[in-house]
Design a protein around this nucleic acid. Sequence first.
DNA 1: CTGTTAGCGCCTTCAA
DNA 2: TTGAAGGCGCTAACAG
Lengths: 342, 342
Amino acid sequence: MPQTKKSTLVLVAERAGVSIASVSRVMNGLPASEQVVERVRKAADELGYAPNATARSLKAGKTEQIALAVADVGNPVYVGMMHEISRVVTKAGYRLVLSSTGSDPQDQIDLLTALNRGFADGLILSPLRVTEQLGEKLAGSRLPIVIIGSVPPGVELDNVRADSATGMGLAVQHLVEQGRERIALVNGPLDTVPGAARLGGYLRALEAHGLPANPEAQVAAKDFTYRAGLKAAARLLDQCTPDAVVCANDLLAIAVQKVVTSRGLRIPDDIAIVGMDDTELAELAQPAITSVDLGSVKRAKTAARLLLRRLDDPQAPIEQVVIEPSLTVRASSVSGARESGL
Amino acid sequence: MPQTKKSTLVLVAERAGVSIASVSRVMNGLPASEQVVERVRKAADELGYAPNATARSLKAGKTEQIALAVADVGNPVYVGMMHEISRVVTKAGYRLVLSSTGSDPQDQIDLLTALNRGFADGLILSPLRVTEQLGEKLAGSRLPIVIIGSVPPGVELDNVRADSATGMGLAVQHLVEQGRERIALVNGPLDTVPGAARLGGYLRALEAHGLPANPEAQVAAKDFTYRAGLKAAARLLDQCTPDAVVCANDLLAIAVQKVVTSRGLRIPDDIAIVGMDDTELAELAQPAITSVDLGSVKRAKTAARLLLRRLDDPQAPIEQVVIEPSLTVRASSVSGARESGL
DNA sequence: CTGTTAGCGCCTTCAA
DNA sequence: TTGAAGGCGCTAACAG
């Protein structure tokens, strides 16, 4: 077994009786004579030598690390995105540093200052709320940043976002086609970017289909979690009697489903439900939930690629990508679908 | 707005008209005269100076990073653990590096070699399968490692593990108390540590309660995922007629629930279901699923603390912690519970 | 092909 | 209090 103490170029060089430069060359596969290669290999092996990553980073001016910060861990959609980003950047030889930011915007500011210390070569950021101060900090960053979601006005950064307003449109249209007329909305907080977008899309879609927008049919959960969804759903059902509910994400949809069922109403016969994000949760649910696929995995992959590209070529033109939504229909919104195997 | 170019100690020193040592001192809050502090502050501000993390690491001999590697991302239980670990290590001033390892043991070997390059100060590892080669590598690591799960025989490392055999016992006992007699098992792969432990616990528990161990009532899914669970559940119900099913985790439990329901059987009346891990999924399910809490969050927190402690004091005695399981009873296993609000 | 050397950016004795 | 200088471990340019 290799030595368990730490070892450096110098130690290996001494043991092999060559210069440190030779060791470096051998370790990096640069040309060297048979003899030297042999002896260095042996010495390195015996010492269990592994080149120090930090020293290399300092020399090279890059860390081979990419930072990822999402506001809402715990939401399954982010887990999937994280997974995908991890896959892509790892394949490109980068490590992924998870920077936990809560919903507090200050966390993100701190993160950006830390980033400027160069602990990573770039950042993928998915902010829930966008403040002016955040915008400034983003603009002033020296390192490449890719935003998942909307960029603050005036900030020129690569970004990928979902078109959740159009997604809402798909959901509403589908429900209208199913003959629903009193379509309610269970949204997340309105002061978040996604929350605002979903509300806008919902109102626009109702209007497009000539349906009235009943304020009592619109509730906003305190956040995008299951628990908050339970309360919001209860409130909704207390104040109106919809025949369909669209939800800002799948967690909220499951919460609505639970409350609806517990009140003795049937899904989809009495109330149809549509979620958003099309996570595994929608499929697991009983009955399975129709959901708007906002292309989370695709967004994640695109974001990772945009960042890799910019790291490769800092001068590349800014790209702003919008991923189109699509609808995955399941049993929760189609009468008779359960029997037909959906 | 601060300059957007990169800046170093030297640049700040020049601009402030002092030596780099003085700048360093001011940045680190060491004693300096009013004047110097003032001028350095100003210069640093104007340049948007932030001390380079890599250089600091090289000098200090530590990265302030902790690596985390779990085999089975996508399983909600790991998401929760990751979240908790992130919380604890962040509070202690460390960044979390996510090292994706698939189920391939070679990935973990590679990870350990990378770790010896010192990209992080320590590692938290949760392996699904434990090979001999992994054991050797673990033993030969120069950096502190905490294992979540069982350590290979002969390897002396800090570790935290769940007692899933006892957990199985709780599940079986609960079902027996509910009057169930034909208790089936939907397990994960038997060549994984958790899979083997769960099977052992199951068999032991049956015996303890004087129940026969019917081989046809035991199936092993190909992995611990929902999809694999669907197949396993179908197989199980094809070959026997249990009145209860214990599952190796909540994903499998939900799969079983789905298949059971789709075959027109009622939960819990015809078949009771118990899951494991007690994730949010168990609560979301319809009906909610009774689940064995294996203390995942507690394990995560403990693992993080053990690693922090060892980083703080490398000489500390090895600690091996076992977290006791407990049972969270929900509607899926108690007849009449749905009406009483469980 | 090989060795010597100059940094990468920072912290930290050691003198002044 | 302040500055000069060495070195953390490595790579790359330059001699030999």
